[in-house]
Amino acid sequence: MKHGKLFAVVLLAALLAAAPLFLNAYQVDVLNSIGLYGLLALGLNLILGEAGLFNMGHAAFYAVGAYTAAILNTRYQIPILWTLPLSGLTAGLFALVVARPVVHLRGDYLLIVTIGVGEIVRIALVNDIFGMTGGANGIFGISRPQLFGIVIRRPWEFFYLIWGCVALTIFLFLRLKQSRFGRALNYLREDEVAAEGSGINTAYYKLAAFGLGAAWAGMAGTLFAAKMTIISPESFNFWESVVLFMIVILGGAGNIAGVLLAAFLVIGLPELFREFASARMLVFGLVMVVMMVFRPRGLLPARGGRFSPVTLARGRG
């Protein structure tokens, strides 16, 4: 990493960490929203960006995680943050089960299947499946998270929780990217046939990407449930999947910094455009088109693998 770049990253991180000191509750909450979508988008980035699997139903996994957390918390009084690994696991397993029979489909067919899965999950939630999801009302009365004896309730407290998770995710996913696993996914994305020819078990890697990405969405779901204290099916509609899809592609599929930047723009811009009142989504749509036209490969395109022999040796593991 070049010194200049390192400096910029450190500066940005410090600026972000200090943000609650000079921003008001609303602005901090916008950052919270951005962080949450950042987490979701980083998970989707594994599936869509790194492995190149068209997934436009990410909200389904997000919903499974959020509902797992909410049900465990409201029915069995398990502290909400403790449900984090479990909701990740549930969402990941759900993704594996769903993806298993369809993961071999070609791009656009997979796209509609994931859209379908997203809709089926939402409809199931609305229809109060298993009598546990509360139908259209959703689940309410989810307790506030506690960390080291502190109850997290105010926007700036959530800010550190959410962005702490984002930081951890960045760290983990950067490591993953450098690993044999990450390179196999990229190979898959660039040329599936060649990847298979070089002995990569494509089905295994595709499923692994799906499971891991979905698990991240599940955990983000827990954070969402904890923050809102009420969840309902409409928070997990098709539009959420579309937004996440746009974030990953706009950011530059496969580039972590790009995806985060895009989360800032896609979630932040509609807030910024509040001054336009009824016209704010119009301006937003226009900006999306213009950004794509001027940065067709995304804001920060993923660069093809440049790996030093050292990292390669480490990844061989």
Partner: peptide, 30 residues
């Protein structure tokens, strides 16, 4: 919205299409 993206990755054009969809819809509303 699409011609400038013809040589780009396919999904970029999809995002452009989604943006165009939002734009068209809200234009009608206004």
């Amino acid at each position: 919205a699409y011609r400038p993206l013809r040589e780009s990755p396919r999904l970029s054009a999809v995002v452009s299409a989604l943006g165009a969809s939002i734009f068209l819809q809200n234009t009608l509303m206004l």
